[in-house]
Amino acid sequence: MMMEKERTRGVATKAVIIGNPNSGSAGDEGYLERFAEALRTGGIEVEVLNTERPDHATELAALAGDKLVIAAGGDGTVNEVVNGLSGGATLGILPLGTANVLARELGLPMNPEEACARILTGTAFRMDVGVATDEEGTERRFACMAGVGFDADVVREVGPRLKRYLRSLAFPLAALKVYLQGDQPDLQIVDGDTTYVTQFAVVANGRYYGGEFEMAEGVSLGSGELEVVLIEKVGLLMRPDVLARILAKSPLDRAMKSFTSRKNIVAKSPAARGARVPVQIDGEVWGRLPMSFRIEPAALNVIR
Score class of each variant (00 low, 15 high):
168 S>E: 09
44 I>S: 02
147 G>P: 06
291 M>A: 11
216 A>T: 13
271 A>I: 00
80 E>L: 08
44 I>V: 15
19 G>R: 09
180 L>Y: 04
57 A>D: 07
202 V>T: 12
252 L>S: 09
179 Y>T: 06
238 M>G: 12
4 E>R: 14
217 E>R: 11
174 A>T: 11
43 G>P: 09
260 T>N: 02
68 L>V: 09
250 S>A: 15
168 S>Q: 13
51 T>H: 07
30 G>H: 12
74 G>S: 10
232 E>T: 14
139 E>C: 03
194 T>I: 14
24 G>A: 15
241 D>N: 15
161 R>T: 15
2 M>L: 15
249 K>A: 15
239 R>Q: 12
128 D>R: 13
57 A>L: 06
45 E>F: 04
152 A>R: 09
49 L>C: 14
249 K>Q: 15
149 G>W: 08
229 V>K: 03
167 R>E: 14
98 T>G: 11
235 G>R: 06
201 A>S: 05
36 A>S: 13
7 R>E: 10
39 L>E: 09
99 A>W: 00
293 F>K: 11
221 L>G: 13
207 R>S: 15
103 A>L: 01
159 G>F: 07
193 D>T: 11
102 L>S: 06
173 L>E: 05
139 E>V: 04
71 A>H: 05
18 I>C: 00
270 P>D: 04
51 T>D: 06
40 R>G: 09
112 P>F: 01
242 V>K: 04
15 A>M: 09
3 M>A: 03
68 L>T: 11
139 E>T: 15
231 I>D: 00
48 V>P: 02
231 I>M: 09
253 D>I: 10
129 V>C: 12
11 V>F: 08
244 A>E: 10
222 G>M: 06
183 D>I: 07
140 R>Q: 10
105 E>K: 05
251 P>V: 13
112 P>T: 03
174 A>V: 11
209 Y>H: 10
250 S>Q: 14
232 E>V: 07
54 P>D: 06
20 N>S: 14
63 L>K: 15
141 R>C: 10
293 F>A: 04
291 M>K: 09
75 D>C: 13
93 I>Q: 02
293 F>N: 00
260 T>H: 02
46 V>H: 00
44 I>T: 07
177 K>Y: 02
63 L>R: 15
287 G>F: 07
175 A>M: 07
203 V>Q: 01
10 G>E: 11
69 V>Q: 03
153 D>W: 06
220 S>W: 08
215 M>D: 02
232 E>Q: 14
209 Y>W: 10
154 V>S: 04
28 D>K: 12
171 F>N: 08
202 V>I: 11
276 R>M: 10
251 P>D: 07
152 A>Q: 07
200 F>P: 04
228 V>M: 05
131 V>Y: 00
189 I>M: 04
294 R>P: 01
266 V>K: 00
1 M>E: 12
143 A>C: 08
229 V>F: 08
131 V>L: 13
26 A>K: 05
